[in-house]
Write a protein that binds this DNA or RNA. Structure first.
Length: 624
RNA sequence: GCCGGAGUAGCUCAGUGGUAGAGCAAUUCACUCGUAAUGAAUAGGCCAGGGGUUCGACUCCCCUCUCCGGCUCCA
């Protein structure tokens, strides 16, 4: 008996695939004797993947129909959609995309059934004689990946055959809503050394409405793009004259940045860090000792050759400088932990195609710290670091926080084995104790040590990697860092790298996107706009401004000749948290009109003292 | 770096082998106004930069820079 028969026609209509003994299978699969099964619909994430993967097949089918000489590679479901990679003579144009989408619609309308067939690898190689990428996949199939060793599965619909593990929806007509979104180049198997293929991306949803909603969400995301808001709110810009990935901060953005920096310093102080400062460049010898010129050179700016042929490099990281501060004197175990922090400007030569606003810039500022401690202090130090990081994000309004624990990589880890183990145990313990959700990324650690990466979800559900807490076995070794134990023996300290925001610029970009530009009042460059109704109210407006400024608020008076409505509009489009309007009545009564961002209702005749109380409350910074 | 797309006024964009337009912003004048755009006038451009083709290039071709979407990268 197959699943469709078992569940009856009504359920079968909504079903797209089935899980038999916890394995994803086609709806037409036989259940078997002892089979337990559950039906997947488009409401299940896995069911949605089946839809998207099926849509990817239809995409490949359409492309091969229109471009018979093209070869096809792989086409998986991804977040929100799917893609398929093709080998074609010339890249797809937007017009091609329309044609392909049109052909897909015809295939969907034809409601072609997907038929599954299991064949021997040698037969499959013949089927895909003209498709080298498919052949390569067949030749590399691990016996453990298929039910019957030596066999692979094919899916056929109306003459189009694809190599695929499945499952698929019963037929092409079951795809409710699909749209092709963009094209791009992509390397075969993701390797730059391989052929470059042409990728087509698409999105598919259980209904047209959900597709439309998705497109609206994309537009929303575009509207909160920090590059756009940064220009609209006059926070920063990227003058072409500076070069790619290099920003300047305008006065409004400068105030925002100062507020973030001030908080960073205050928080580091609270958590027991000392402030240090280091230069932007150093002799290349330093970077040889640190190993950066060995492992990281391609991300560093080229050398500057100075007097006596001495070469200097701009710093991509702050670590070696902090190490030299540690090394400047001998240390007793009594001195430890030593915690050095710096808002350090770093420069990394990111690939030109990778630069992306402030999220991936070539010049940026790390809220960096390096902690040197004894093995006995490791647990407490990690606990403190994680607490700092979590508090930092929560204060800025990120509630949804999770972490990855990256453990020892398989290839070439450096440092003593027992310290790796101890460190991983300690990192996992602090994660457990913190109560935040975390995943273990096995083998994802750097060669120099394990780490915790902390991610926050923003207001529209995107996940940003922000903080990192990394243990480093390599640098203390390379710089021969030591302290003297109670037994008067030299011992190597543990070293903990930690960035809380990550890069300040990137963090601020994420804040801008999270809040869609309407920053919380304590971070807003201008907190209150005062609007005099007519020129004769300007003196009173200035009086109010002085009072608000004395109360610690950041205030502007709009004395332009514009109408009240226009001034209000400008304040709102600049996303200022509050507007105060003052007219004849207010001058007489000693009151103001108050309107808060996001609230169309205004309060009139508010006594000045009450307005100040309300606004200072609104603008209150989270306690440190 | 690679694949594709793009660069016209501060911003958003139109335009075309015969040397450039709109809206917003700016400036000036008038208006003095009570919660999302008062009106008029003015000014503003080496059409990203550099080479070529052409009688003539913003337009066609090549190179460079910058941006956008991906890939890649993120010791």
């Amino acid at each position: 008996m197959d699943v469709a028969a078992a569940i009856g026609p009504r359920l079968a209509k909504a079903a797209v695939a089935v899980k038999i003994n916890n394995e994803l299978r086609d709806l037409s699969s036989p259940i078997g004797e002892s089979g337990t099964f559950s039906v997947l619909t488009l409401n299940d994430p896995e069911g949605l993947d089946v839809l998207r993967h099926s849509a990817a097949h239809v995409l490949a089918q359409a492309v091969l129909d229109i471009f018979p000489s093209s070869t096809f590679a792989i086409g998986p479901a991804i977040e929100d959609g799917f893609y398929y990679d093709f080998g074609v003579e010339s890249p797809f144009t937007p017009a091609d995309l329309e044609r392909v989408e049109g052909r897909m619609m015809e295939i969907i309308a034809a409601d072609q059934p997907f038929e599954r067939r299991s064949v021997s690898a040698s037969e499959a190689l013949q089927v895909f004689a003209a498709h080298p990428y498919k052949r390569e996949i067949i030749e590399n199939v691990e016996p453990s990946e298929v039910a019957n060793a030596g066999e692979v599965t094919l899916y056929r619909n109306n003459g189009f055959v694809d190599l695929c593990r499945g499952p698929h929806m019963p037929s092409t007509g079951r795809i409710p809503a699909v749209k092709l979104t963009r094209t791009s180049g992509a390397y075969w198997r993701g390797d730059q050394a391989n052929d470059q293929l042409q990728r087509i991306y698409g999105t598919a949803w259980p209904s047209q409405k959900e597709l439309d909603d998705y497109l609206v969400r994309q537009e929303e995301a575009e509207k909160r793009d920090h590059r756009r808001l940064g220009a609209e709110l006059d926070l920063f810009s990227f003058p072409e004259e500076l070069g790619s990935g290099l920003a300047v901060w305008h006065p409004k953005g400068g105030m925002f940045r100062k507020l973030v920096e001030d908080r960073s310093r205050a928080m580091h102080n609270k958590y027991g860090f000392d402030y240090v400062f280091s230069p932007h460049l150093a002799k290349s010898d330093l970077w040889h000792t640190s190993g950066h010129l060995g492992y990281y050179a391609e991300n560093m700016y080229p050398g500057l050759v100075m007097d006596n042929n001495q070469e200097y490099r701009v710093k991509p990281m702050n670590c070696p400088f902090h190490i030299l501060i540690y090394k400047d004197s001998g240390h007793s175990y009594r001195d430890l932990p030593i915690r050095l922090s710096e808002l350090g400007a770093c420069y990394r030569y990111e690939l030109s195609g990778a630069v992306h606003g402030l999220l991936r810039a070539r010049g940026f500022t790390q809220d960096d710290s390096h902690t040197f401690c004894t093995p006995e202090q490791l647990d407490d130090e990690l606990k403190m670091h994680l607490d700092f990081v979590l508090t930092w994000h929560r204060d800025f309004g990120f509630e949804d926080i999770e972490a990855d624990l990256s453990t020892k990589p398989a290839k070439a880890p450096e440092g003593p084995q027992e310290r790796w183990e101890a460190a991983e145990v300690a990192l996992e313990k602090v994660l457990k104790d913190s109560g935040i959700p975390y995943q273990v990324a096995e083998g994802e650690g750097a060669f120099y040590g394990p780490k915790i990466d902390v991610h926050a979800r923003d207001a529209i559900g995107r996940r940003w990697q922000l903080s990192t807490i990394q243990i480093d076995f390599t640098l203390p070794e390379r710089f021969e860092l030591e302290y003297t134990t109670a037994e008067n023996k030299p011992e190597r300290p543990y070293m903990i790298h930690c960035a809380k925001a990550g890069s300040l610029e990137r963090f601020m970009a994420v804040l801008v996107e999270h809040y869609a530009g309407a920053l919380p009042a304590w971070l807003a460059p201008v907190q209150v706009t005062i609007v005099p109704v007519a020129d004769r109210h300007a003196d009173y407006a200035r009086e109010i401004m002085v009072k608000l400024a004395d109360a610690g608020l950041r205030v502007e008076v709009d004395e332009s000749g514009d109408t009240v409505g226009d001034k209000i509009r400008k304040s709102i489009t600049q996303k200022h948290p509050a507007v105060i309007v003052v007219g004849d009545n207010d001058v007489e009564e000693g009151t103001v009109g108050l309107r808060l961002y996001g609230d169309e209702n205004d309060s009139r005749g508010v006594p000045v003292a009450d307005a100040i109380t309300a606004l200072t409350e609104l603008a209150k910074e989270p306690a440190i």
